[in-house]
Design a protein around this nucleic acid. Sequence first.
DNA 1: CGCGCGCCTTGATCCGGGTCAAAAGGCTAG
DNA 2: CTAGCCTTTTGACCCGGATCAAGGCGCGCG
Lengths: 238, 238
Amino acid sequence: MVTPVVPRIVAGRIAHCERCGVRARSVCASLPGNDLERLASIAVVRQCGPGEVIMMEGEPAAAYHNITSGFVRLHKSLPDGRDQVTGFARPGDFLGLASEDNYGVTATAIGAVQLCRFPRDRFRKLMHALPSLEDRLLAVASHELVIAQERMLLLGRKTARERVASFLLDLDSPCGETGAILLPMTRSDIADYLGLTIETVSRTLSAFRREGRIDLKVANQVQLIDRNGLRRIAEARA
Amino acid sequence: MVTPVVPRIVAGRIAHCERCGVRARSVCASLPGNDLERLASIAVVRQCGPGEVIMMEGEPAAAYHNITSGFVRLHKSLPDGRDQVTGFARPGDFLGLASEDNYGVTATAIGAVQLCRFPRDRFRKLMHALPSLEDRLLAVASHELVIAQERMLLLGRKTARERVASFLLDLDSPCGETGAILLPMTRSDIADYLGLTIETVSRTLSAFRREGRIDLKVANQVQLIDRNGLRRIAEARA
DNA sequence: CGCGCGCCTTGATCCGGGTCAAAAGGCTAG
DNA sequence: CTAGCCTTTTGACCCGGATCAAGGCGCGCG
């Protein structure tokens, strides 16, 4: 599944990340052009099919990845099958920061995914040679930590309604498009992300619809109507 | 509360961090001696009394800190008073990585705390000048991310018994001493850390005692007896 | 076109842990 | 030593969300 390609093509793919705006979780965004080229020179393109494991919790952290297209589910599991999704990653996002010698989470492709794969040793060597890259990594890691702590508050202290409202608003902010939010993940992914069951997620979404806060055209397409109401629910101000 | 001191003294305090072994969360540990001195040159010593706020969630991230002595509680709150402790920090630990322009969490002193305070701008300038420091920061941030994701699994998917068992084992590993674990934090801190109530924490500890897995001499002093049993409970293997 | 198979929704019931209440230590001041 | 206060423990009850169990719906495929 790992196909070496000529640097030029990969550079194009990495540069592509920049087009979706400077994303807080993107390492490539806002890197100088020649640093991007150096990065491209050590990258190989990797294609993954739906459900394919990109990296596995506990295995040696052999590489970092940058998502070119598709969505990725990051998660940890308990031996009895209980699953906690720690995050979703989108095009432009960087994978592998939450690793020491071994990967800390499993990354699974949702649908088809294309990535740039950076072998660990070569990447780290390059990181030491490129200060702007190391800076960017530290900034992304700090951002991820802030997000992670927000999620601890959600998982430890929020009710089901508060969790689902927070989730909808989180999806709303980053890339507002036609107005409707597309959910690339299943109810099961959402439930595992929010520390709930699929039934509770479904029931809560139905309740929000009944209350006129959202519109559910199709199961994976949500229109936010009463953003202020959702915000009040998410922040427990009501 | 911020007292400027001559660099020499501060250097001593920072170097002191190294004595408690190379801790994964310590930025100073394993830094070259002259880098430590450079660090010391921009530091001021800060003393905090019990309950004093070291940094406040949402406020401009004006400084980083390194703990010289005492314990610190890191937490986030909801408007209605619900509180989630995102972590505890010990001597040698570095505070402020989970911040972008503003602090992401509140840090409160548990008991008396002494810190080295590094003004943000000067610290960041120094970081760019000292590659070993930036490397270390990235390593600590990666470690924190791994920990954070472990905690998401705990908060999102584990039962009360599993949470308390995990907590006891986490405290056991880092600095094993006489055998008994000293809990510097209150039941309320533990509950807010584990996403439970004080009653549930207390009940679960009592249950573990009744089952012969731990011994509770005093409320804040726990002796682990059946580590394997606790491990089985924590990892949901039984 | 209809059948089968996932995914999602809805309903009924159950239970882990929250809430409310009170008793038991433990610590400090007098 | 005793009073007062705060933290922890224990008990009784309750509720939000999990679990168990049917349906509904959309989609690909024969």
